[in-house]
Design a protein around this nucleic acid. Sequence first.
RNA 1: UGGGCCGUCGCCAAGUGGUAAGGCACCAGGUUUUGAUCCUGGCAUUCGUUGGUUCGAAUCCAGCCGGCCCAGCCA
Length: 559
Amino acid sequence: MSDSSAETSDSSNFIRDIIDADLASNKVSAVVTRFPPEPNGYLHIGHAKSICLNFGIARDYGGHCNLRFDDTNPEKESVEYVNSIRRDVEWLGFTWHSNPFASDYFDQLYAYALDLIKQGLAYVDSQNADEIRANRGTLTEPGVDSPYRDRSVEENIQLFEAMRNDEHKDGEHALRAKIDMQSPNINMRDPVLYRIRHATHHNTGDKWCIYPLYDFTHGLSDAIEGVTHSLCTLEFEDHRPLYDWILDNLETPSRPVQIEFARLQLEYTLTSKRKLNMLVDEGHVSGWDDPRMLTISGMRRRGFTPESIVSFCDAIGITKKYSTIEMGVLENALREDLNARAVRRMAVINPIKVVIENYPEDQEEFFSGANHPQNPDYGTREVPFSREIYIERDDFMEDAPSKFFRLSPGREVRLRFAYYITCKEVIKNEAGEIESLICTYDPESRGGKSPDGRKVKGTIHWVSARHAVDARVNLYDRLFTSANPGAAADFHQALNPDSNIMMDNAKFEPAIELTNNPIAYQFERLGYFISDYDSTNDNPVFNRTMTLRDSWAKIEQSQ
RNA sequence: UGGGCCGUCGCCAAGUGGUAAGGCACCAGGUUUUGAUCCUGGCAUUCGUUGGUUCGAAUCCAGCCGGCCCAGCCA
């Protein structure tokens, strides 16, 4: 009882306030929500916000949430999208109460339309689309009534049935609500309810040649399912009067309310379906699941965990305010989750060979390395060591500033888990490029500590050359260089040419599962990585999910 | 005078008439065999603006300023 007030404070938002009030006043006794995507594309991070909202509310209030496909426009929809959407919602960790199609309700919807006609609240308009548009008026001028607006109920019924019975061509007639052509709200100027469309539907096949529109379908579908709170994005605010008009004029099993919230806008990303499509079709990305895409399938391939996405959605909140979230928020949610769960390993992505000249040629030994520095439950693994190792090219500098704590001529560093080494000589090729380094090690420093207690500031990662596994690593960066690519006249200008850098010569320590491995690794000091779908034991391919925070890079840049 | 909606720290966001939570980012320290993680501290006398009501206003009222959405037989 004493904690009850504290519980809501951390995840409260204006929608939950409304629900609390509705529950308190007994306006509703249980909470039912729905996530209603049209199956005409892949789900993206913006949908995740809506999914977390709808399913999260249902869960927290002990109600339920339906996954309903809003499939009233057959030409754009397909089972491919239906399947991908189901998979993505499940992957995010949510379970729907039921999974209907709006098209399952076509018979009921048709009956509702007939009801409206009989009440004199709908009519068949025989103007074509251009005429309807011309007579709708503009934002500042009222529309004018259709010449067909006053057809008799009998004639309307007959015409509507004829539309349904395939007696007319596409566009010849449309069913319209009879509301008010003078309304300042354009959505109320006799909106079209049904259109003739001779198209095969992914769910209903060729059963129908007329299809209801969103505004007619949505509220009725909500009412049929017993949805109590129908949550949608801000651009539907102007549709709410129509949503209400339809439900107020028809007898439905329940009476839902529509509440609008701001859609997600994320820096450096595009969420417009049309532009996402262009990215795929024009080959700027490899597909809908390209790891650079902020689609759910792309993020999955990139190595995001569902938990990190849910945590991100919790962090950004729900309001009616137009806002743009900084990438750092998403990155933080990802790192926070991955840091807690990722298995630590060593890998060298851009190798340079180091020969430890005083280490015996035919010797090898193993060091025990913790799989997670803060979590002993993760156990340890054995890391092999030998005379020749690889280190990261960035961990060596010929003329290093004093702040550079890594390897440079004459300086000593610690090899993680292993020994202290000192750089004695730099071997270059004819072009003057560094080919390898000659170092010595201190046998007394085994395990990374020396008996004399001398301080070694830098610790670097390494992989034994003899034991290394060759692999390819994809380095990913944001797809766009501009924070708001969608605002640009042409988003192509903002494409980041370096959004995918392939590193073909990476070296992994042996204790890494190369394939069919959905678990996250942290390659120490480099970032979080995951095996790609294409990875095989013969040709391992890993994707960099996210870098680690890098305060050295900041220092370096500021100098 | 077309209609609808929004404006709290660099970015999000609590706050619902009693004297500005939290997260991200940033800055300064500490721990550390990942320049990671972790820990500590700092970071809005002020809530778009002006005026009003009130003992008291981010919260109520009015005006003004700024931004977003709507003219598909798309959703």
